[in-house]
Write a protein that binds this DNA or RNA. Structure first.
Lengths: 208, 208, 208, 208
DNA sequence: CATGAATGAGGATTCATTCAT
DNA sequence: TATGAATGAATCCTCATTCAT
């Protein structure tokens, strides 16, 4: 028991140190980019020595992967379309968008910034990420859309494409914000409603 | 006169060499990323010596800027909303989207890949780019939307946000394609119509 | 008295630990070489923690010196030409060689490997070793050879050189074995006789 | 033709630079040992920049291999037992030994020092070296000994072992000299005769 | 202009050593 | 004593940039 207890504490210490490093790395990588950032930068930001990082991560790339892994975990935890059962689409949509966008805090934006920047020019990472995150998410979402469509709640559409368009809309807004667009930043809170509005009714539709 | 003639030829030669280098750099940067790619890689791809690049560009960053500048020029050339006068919005929209998306050839995708990747983690570049490209484009577009709205062709909306959503939709689709989504790639030709359809009528709207 | 007793036990414990470390170090150093081997390698092989080594040895070099010191001690213990009094040279020679070669077990080979490798490129160690081991051994041996020569048992020769040649022969055979020569390894048991035969009679001499 | 000429000059320049680096490395490696010596040390000794070494050698290990390769080439050039046809063994032996020992200049000693030191604790290098140098040399020599033995010029002996003993004698003397034995160093010029004398007649044999 | 050898600053990584527990 | 996490100096190697030819 005593040993198991010690092991547990050990694990927690290790996890804490890893998180400490990943937090620092996230900030630094987002600021300077993965390549311009040095291990020393990260170490300094984490308040530890250069070498210490290599106790917890095999190399610089492994730190990046660590950031990506944390994103995965969070994403998995978030992927809950469950509560949709008894809402109308409009409500569900707004709620879901609000959840997603609210959830992405400043730290989340940094992570997206880093990951996206690197994924765009790193084939291995791209494939890995698509397989582990994007693909599964689409598969999950697809089922919901089919359900709604079969129920006649939304008009007939090519589901995979429709889904991708909605995703793209959100993704594009994220990118636009990352590019520093002030309008998006100011209106961030209103976006869920606006997005839902547009997605559901288009720019010509009645409502609003 | 002879000299002026020579100068002209000179200029063309220089422009040709610069483009040769930028073409090579675009391919290489897209493949490996700006930082992982070496000047030697680019020189080899361009079929010239390392040092030659420094005759045409001050440094590696200047090559990146060169790629960005060519994007600007092309963009400027494309920014023609002019012919909208006598079309209905639906037609105009589809046409405009088709133009934009068609125009982005494989080379264009590479450029976006490079620029986006770097812009995300380079504050200077980001500001520069926003000022020179994104900002002006929005300003231009804004006028058109106001025109349509005043004419009652589209419903009342917060124009800056609406515009940004449409832009985000296209931007997001580009990113999704760059991330390797096969569905988007296969359906690329159909996108202008699908986008227009969704933007105009939403997923609940009538039409098809 | 009790304290003295404890001290004794203490000393033995310390000696045991030191030997445990030196044994591990010998194996590891022989495998990877002194420089490629890390303290962690040695600690792991000894089944202890990195830091523990520094309780028993000042630094990595001191571990190497420890190995060398054990070699010295063994060598000193072995340097017994004493029993020569009543044998003829032939018998004495074979016996002495057999003793020396037999004595060098696998562990001994490893030690020679390590020490020789390092001595060759470490001036301080070289001088130290020459002073403490090689020089004294030659001085001791020289007396015997002079005795035999004066007694007419061997022909007139430049004693220091002759001695060095015999030593070189044995040393050379050790090195050749360390270099992995399979013939030497297979015939190791026969070497004392063959060496004696050649040293005493040459390759042209009568006998066998 | 002009091109072929340029290529030739290029090759010579490259070879010259490589040799310049290898010369410097030989001195430095012999002084400090391969591992203690830094690339900077070698570069400084060669009067060039650190990075330049990497134009001519893939990495530090490749420099070591370059030294080893030059040794090989020299060795191959030296392996001429040819002129033995018309001499008696005694003369041939002395001549051959003189050739070998004379040939090993100060540079040669350094090379042996480096190579031996590293080979002793580097399995890969050891195998490589045995295959490429030691093995072939023994095979070549074996034929000569068999010839002499069949002709009755030397007494019956286990040829592989005899050869190895003679080799060991020379090798051992080299090592002893490398270990700093002053006697060996002073008498180096006389060694061929003394060795031949002992090898041929033993320490008990007649002659002198 | 074009070349590509040379440069050397910069950065990732290793590992001997220390020290709080 | 024993531990092993933390340290940071040391070193290999890369690559943007220069410049003599």
């Amino acid at each position: 028991m005593a040993k198991s207890n010690n092991d547990l504490i050990q694990e927690q210490l290790i996890a804490a140190r890893r998180n400490q490093i990943l937090d620092a790395a996230t900030t630094i990588f987002a600021e300077k980019g993965f390549h311009r950032a040095t291990i020393r930068d990260v170490a300094k930001a984490a308040g530890i020595a250069d070498g210490t990082i290599y106790i917890y991560f095999e190399n610089k790339t492994a730190v990046l992967m660590g950031i990506l892994d944390r994103l995965n975990e969070t994403d998995q935890r978030e992927a809950n379309f469950e509560q949709s059962a008894d809402m109308d689409i409009d409500t569900f949509f707004r709620m879901h968008l609000r959840q997603r966008l609210d959830f992405i805090g400043p730290k989340g934006m940094q992570v997206i910034q880093i990951v996206l920047s690197e994924i765009l020019v790193n084939l291995d990472l791209r494939d890995l990420y698509y397989e582990k995150i994007i693909g599964p998410t689409f598969q999950l979402a697809e089922r919901y859309f089919h359900g709604w469509m079969d129920a006649g709640l939304i008009r007939k559409f090519d589901v995979p494409i429709m889904m991708r368009m909605i995703t793209s809309l959100v993704l594009g807004l994220l990118v636009l914000r990352l590019l520093g667009d002030p309008t998006i930043e100011e209106q961030w809170q209103k976006l869920p409603d606006v997005i839902a509005d547009m997605v559901l009714y288009g720019i010509q539709g009645e409502k609003s």
